[in-house]
Design a protein around this nucleic acid. Sequence first.
DNA 1: TCTGGGGTCCTAGGACCC
DNA 2: TCTGGGGTCCTAGGACCC
Length: 388
Amino acid sequence: METRILHVDMDAFFASVEQAEHAEFLGKPLVVVTKVDSPRGVVSSASYEARKYGISAGIPVGEVRRKCPHAILIPGDYEKYIRVSEQVVKRLQHFAPEVIVASIDEAFLDITGCIHLWGSEERLALQLKDIMRKEMGLPCTVGIASTYILSKMAVKQAKPDGYVSIPSGRELAFLSPLHVRSIPGVGPKTEQIFHSLGIYTIGQIWQLSLEELEKIFGLIYGFHIYQWSRGHDVERWGRLDIPRVISREITFNNDFIYWEDIVPQIVKLLEACTYELRQKGMEARRIVLKVRYADFVTKTFSYSLTQPTFLDKDFISVLPFLIEKAKARKYQVRLVGVIVSELRVSIKQNSLFCFSKEEKMCRVLKCVDFLRERYGFSFIHWAFAIDT
DNA sequence: TCTGGGGTCCTAGGACCC
DNA sequence: TCTGGGGTCCTAGGACCC
């Protein structure tokens, strides 16, 4: 039996969630933004009514107001969108034994063995769309094809509120006329390189041999493009359900001049990262300080610990070293971020044989985490006091 | 109109060891 | 004493995606 992969992508997800909840927003140019009142807010999600005015993800609120003065701007409620996303996934699980969640608003279903239950794959797809619309009030687009990447490319062509199937055997005919940017993984830089070579469509990529692509784009990326342009999946290295990094960042409403004002912000971000580490039962070995200066130049400064940890204090002890490096560039600061990486599942939290001190620390931190959840951050000093 | 926040994966140079 | 080569780790940066 030939494999059939179904890809679901929710249309204008955040905006649609808000429209489903507030009927008065239906049919209106609704724009979900990061910050409503700051000129540094940008669009997270725009309803299709808003997209008619050229509003798309990433553009600043000022430009939104200029392009569409009557647009409705609301701040994003990301925890809500995560909850709705989980409900969507639960509903999708009725259609296939395994649902691979690719992001907050998209998923893949291997429907190879399920099509007969619905009569045809088209009826399955339309039923799925119908249920999302009627039960959750959310429009979505569905693509079905023989590989994951093709199902995703099918969705791109069918948006919004559409359905496209690529029948087995018609893959190359589907791909040939599409623009190179239709390949997920080909962005503006790669597009530019293709254009400089006189290549605009996927069909034209086929004229290049694997060796030529490897020479232009490097061994790995060149191989990927070779496979993707033929509709073939490339095995993913990591598992989707285990995070590789945890990060928090903040863009200030006004640039900061003095590092005394910035450091507490960095500590807060770090606390949020380690809190999530502990919640996930993980620890990290590497910390990265990210700084975007007033001139929009972004620098990162990192340090690897000898042992992975989930304790704030272990990372805080190296923060001064990283901050000193960041200070060397004499510019005002518009963004700071903290990234913890080199993650692994924590042994300390899961082992029955923890040392009593570690165990004590765990309990204290769980208490601190609880208080943080209730009252916000900056309870870190409590943990210090009990540890020492 | 000045440009968010959360991720994934890959590259490249230098240090260091054998 | 001088030399090469391979392997691994560390650090910084970049392309891309939602």
